[in-house]
Design a binder for these strands. Sequence first.
DNA 1: AAAAACTATATTGCACACAATTTAATTGCG
DNA 2: CGCAATTAAATTGTGTGCAATATAGTTTTT
Lengths: 151, 151
Amino acid sequence: MNPTPRLDEQLCFALYAASRAMTARYRPLLDALGLTYPQYLAMLVLWERDGLSVGDLGERLQLDSGTLTPLLKRLEAAGLVLRTRRPSDERSVDIRLTAEGQALRTQAAAIPERLLCHTDLIPEELFRLRDELKALTARLTVSIPTQGETP
Amino acid sequence: MNPTPRLDEQLCFALYAASRAMTARYRPLLDALGLTYPQYLAMLVLWERDGLSVGDLGERLQLDSGTLTPLLKRLEAAGLVLRTRRPSDERSVDIRLTAEGQALRTQAAAIPERLLCHTDLIPEELFRLRDELKALTARLTVSIPTQGETP
DNA sequence: AAAAACTATATTGCACACAATTTAATTGCG
DNA sequence: CGCAATTAAATTGTGTGCAATATAGTTTTT
């Protein structure tokens, strides 16, 4: 009935390839800061708002503790953050930037611009694409209806 | 000089989040076939053209042998492909579908449609988004100019 | 107040990604 | 021919992602 799906026609592969290509573009710039790409994203969140819990960070990045706990431990080992149990609720772990973590912010500020310079992309197009991707993510993220659900 | 980049403004994060959200949507459908998402992509390529080498597959998927070798070994262990040294050049490894691997094609054919049904996305928009992502990938993938290169 | 239910993180196990190195086969050159 | 250079996979090591489970702390219920 349906034809076999072709790789080049799949939005899913276009997304997957674009995401990895983007990460590859960031890598040399992030190497200079000693950060991996997901670590950079976590730092972006912390630079916006310090002292979030692991859960807060996970909500923002859409990552769970299985991913974040080891990532944050590596950031701690690198001296960029501190992980401390929240006194008011010992279940929560506060992630706070160290002075070194704060300082990295200055260097990171140059990254988006340097990336743009290397790729001759038009900012307006990027903004539109970004917003379309956000809309797509929102639609993909709605709760999946259970097979045969009848409420 | 530059402001600290904000997570929500970054195209890179929109891409990263969308790609993972898409993979998450595929997961339950692929679980039914016993495939992971990258394995599914590899199978898509093989259903289009059987008997490719590891390198050919890697070129198509933009993945290197460090990723593909274990992935293909798992597909072989699952009985979906055979890995054989090419007689004309023993360095190359031919990947060929088994009868079982060919048979899976029929079930896979229903997947893209089922995914669309679950997400009320308009096909025309998706096609356009896909093509924009391909263009982005192409621009991100051009050879990175060396710092201070003067040809 | 003690048990049960709930919540936040951590741990474990598996499967990618990707850099760097290794191994084996082939090609090219003197 | 003989050997250096090249090529194709495989291997090794690190860092995600994510499901499933475990642990510890908190709240709710009886």
